[in-house]
């Protein structure tokens, strides 16, 4: 870990100004991934701008029925928040399926979104990785890649995004709020993370110096049945082999809204738009779910050792969607 300057920001403005004033700066939230990567030498910031104590620690119910979660609210507090549990349960479940109690107590909402891939080559500075060192090559493409992407990957990068939370946010049509030199803006959570293309070093759409200030869960998905399910190698404290977050509105015996996102399959939470479109107006049957997910997963291009992820994602997806159908319809 390189020596670095440390600045504790008192406000969002102070944070972005300090960022601009310190070449090679990084924002520090809960530190659970950044400090880990600094110890590995993967991240080498010249300065840390500590945003962990910014007044972004509130969960606010907005007049329009949406819910704003401040960027510094800890993962455990989001998961336990009554509004989240009652109205967007998939988000609570996703958070609780991730990491450990200790990590969730430290990790922030903003930091969770900005965590980096757990690809073993990304984490090892002695090996090639285009994400860590553009142009050095992708060791995972032909290497050890059982845990890697089956959708949306490129020749330059086959990493997956590790967040569980982000998968739920994507399915629930959440938006990510940002503050930067150009003021505030927000982007859909499902579009916040990028596909690798030929720029795998860029994980997200965030602009230099921009700060995540919060996420907003929209009223449109509030109170709808939603679920998160994750398959993993051990019963707890493991990253997803594949996961699914889904929200479903069924009226008059047909699907009126479906939000489906996969985790563990791609460089970003994979919003299953083709599957969603196929389900609109359809009867919510297991066969319809399977058919829709097949359409989505037809785009999958598994690597040598991870073809299992396709049926796994399909199975989990069908299971989750089936469980979201109200009993009167089922």
């Amino acid at each position: 870990m390189k020596a670095f300057a440390y600045v504790r920001a008192g406000s969002v403005e102070e944070a972005t100004e300090a960022y601009a004033a310190h070449p090679g700066a990084k924002y520090l939230g809960g530190g659970t991934n950044l400090v880990d990567l600094m110890k590995l030498g993967v991240e080498q910031p010249g300065a840390l701008i500590d945003v962990g104590r910014l007044p972004l620690d509130a969960v606010e119910e907005l007049p329009d029925g949406s819910l704003r979660i401040g960027a510094t609210v800890r993962n455990s507090d989001v998961a336990a928040h009554p509004a989240v549990r009652d109205r967007w349960p998939a988000l609570s479940q996703a958070l609780l399926a991730g990491a450990s109690g200790q990590l969730r107590n430290a990790a922030t909402t903003g930091g969770n979104l900005l965590q980096r891939t757990r690809c073993p080559y990304f984490q090892d500075v002695t090996k090639p990785c285009n994400k860590r060192q553009p142009g050095s090559g992708c060791a995972a493409l032909e290497g050890v890649h059982r845990d890697h992407a089956v959708l949306g990957h490129s020749e330059t990068c086959v990493a997956t995004h590790p967040s569980d939370m982000a998968v739920a946010l994507a399915a629930l049509d959440a938006r990510v709020e940002l503050y930067g030199a150009d003021g505030t803006r927000s982007v859909p959570a499902a579009r916040f993370h990028r596909l690798p293309g030929d720029r795998p070093e860029r994980d997200t759409e965030i602009r230099p110096g921009e700060l995540v200030t919060g996420v907003v869960l929209p009223a449109a998905t509030a109170g709808l049945p939603s679920l998160y399910r994750k398959a993993r190698d051990r019963a707890s404290y493991a990253f997803a082999l594949a996961s699914v977050a889904a929200v479903l509105r069924v009226e008059d015996g047909v699907v009126r809204h479906a939000g489906i996102a996969f985790g563990g399959l791609a460089h970003r939470p994979w919003r299953a738009e083709r599957a969603e479109a196929a389900l609109l107006g359809a009867a919510p049957t297991e066969a319809a779910f399977g058919h829709a997910l097949d359409l989505e997963l037809a785009a999958a291009r598994p690597l040598r050792d991870n073809a299992f992820k396709v049926p796994l994602a399909r199975n989990v997806g069908v299971d989750v969607l089936t469980r979201l159908v109200p009993p009167t319809v089922a």
Binding site: V35, Q102, L103
Partner: peptide, 23 residues
Amino acid sequence: DHGQCGACTVLVDGRRVNSCLQL
């Protein structure tokens, strides 16, 4: 030393955290 085992767990402001990842 990377938040993967929990042996360093302490309570900070009453909450359990991995002290190895807390600067």
